[in-house]
Simulated scan of single mutants.
Amino acid sequence: MRHPYEKFIRLELIAILVAVVIGLFALIKGFLLIVILALYMLAFSLASGAIVEWNMNQTNQAGKHFLQAILLFIFTTYMIFQL
């Protein structure tokens, strides 16, 4: 039997893996815009994890992760405008 939120869990794991791969590529090549893309993927991963926790009625953890995702998104967007 499959977990009812397996799609969201897979989405979170894929986003983390993509963020790691993009982040490693950015470190090797030294491109700042690719680092920003990796940070956006990390924020997306946190948001999808928050959705899973929200649906599992863990509202405190979901709120904390969603707030982290929003702050990371705002910080990354601020970095773009400072370039």
Rank of each mutant, 00 (worst) to 15 (best):
I70L: 12
L42G: 09
H65D: 01
L72K: 06
T76Y: 06
S45M: 04
T59N: 07
W54Q: 05
L37R: 08
N57E: 14
L37E: 10
F66L: 14
Y40D: 06
Y78C: 10
S48L: 01
A43N: 02
H65P: 00
L46I: 03
L46F: 04
A50D: 03
M79H: 10
Q82G: 02
L72I: 15
F81S: 13
L39Q: 10
Q82F: 13
K64Y: 09
Q68V: 06
F75R: 02
F81M: 12
E53Q: 12
T76L: 04
A43Y: 03
N60R: 03
A43S: 13
A50L: 02
I80V: 15
L33V: 12
E53V: 01
A43E: 02
L72R: 03
A69H: 06
A38W: 07
L33A: 12
A47N: 09
L71W: 13
L32E: 15
N55R: 14
I34P: 07
A69N: 05
I80E: 08
I34Q: 10
G49D: 02
F75S: 15
A50P: 05
S45Y: 05
S48D: 00
H65M: 11
E53C: 02
M41E: 11
V35M: 10
N55A: 09
L46C: 06
Q61G: 00
M56D: 08
I51E: 07
M79I: 14
T76E: 06
A62Q: 03
H65I: 00
A47T: 05
L33E: 15
F81E: 06
V52S: 08
Q61W: 03
S48K: 13
M79Y: 13
G63D: 00
M56I: 05
A43I: 08
T76Q: 02
I74G: 08
F66A: 12
T77L: 13
Q68F: 14
S45C: 07
A38R: 12
I80N: 08
Q61D: 04
Y78T: 13
V52A: 09
A38D: 11
S45E: 05
L72V: 15
F44N: 06
T76C: 07
L67Q: 08
L72T: 12
L46Q: 04
A43F: 02
L71G: 09
F73W: 11
F44S: 11
I36L: 15
I34R: 10
F81Q: 12
L72S: 08
M79C: 14
M56S: 11
I74E: 09
A62E: 02
A38G: 14
M79W: 13
F66R: 08
L71K: 11
S48H: 01
A69I: 07
Y40A: 09
I36G: 09
T76W: 02
V35I: 12
L71C: 12
N55G: 00
A62H: 03
Q61C: 01
F75W: 10
L72E: 05
F81R: 13
K64R: 13
F75A: 15
M56W: 00
N60D: 07
T76F: 05
I80R: 11
A50N: 04
V52N: 03
K64C: 04
Q68N: 11
L33I: 11
M56Y: 07
T59A: 06
T77C: 07
I36W: 07
L32G: 15
M79N: 14
A69P: 05
I34M: 15
G63S: 03
F75Q: 05
S45N: 03
N60M: 08
Q61M: 12
A62G: 07
G49T: 03
K64V: 07
E53K: 14
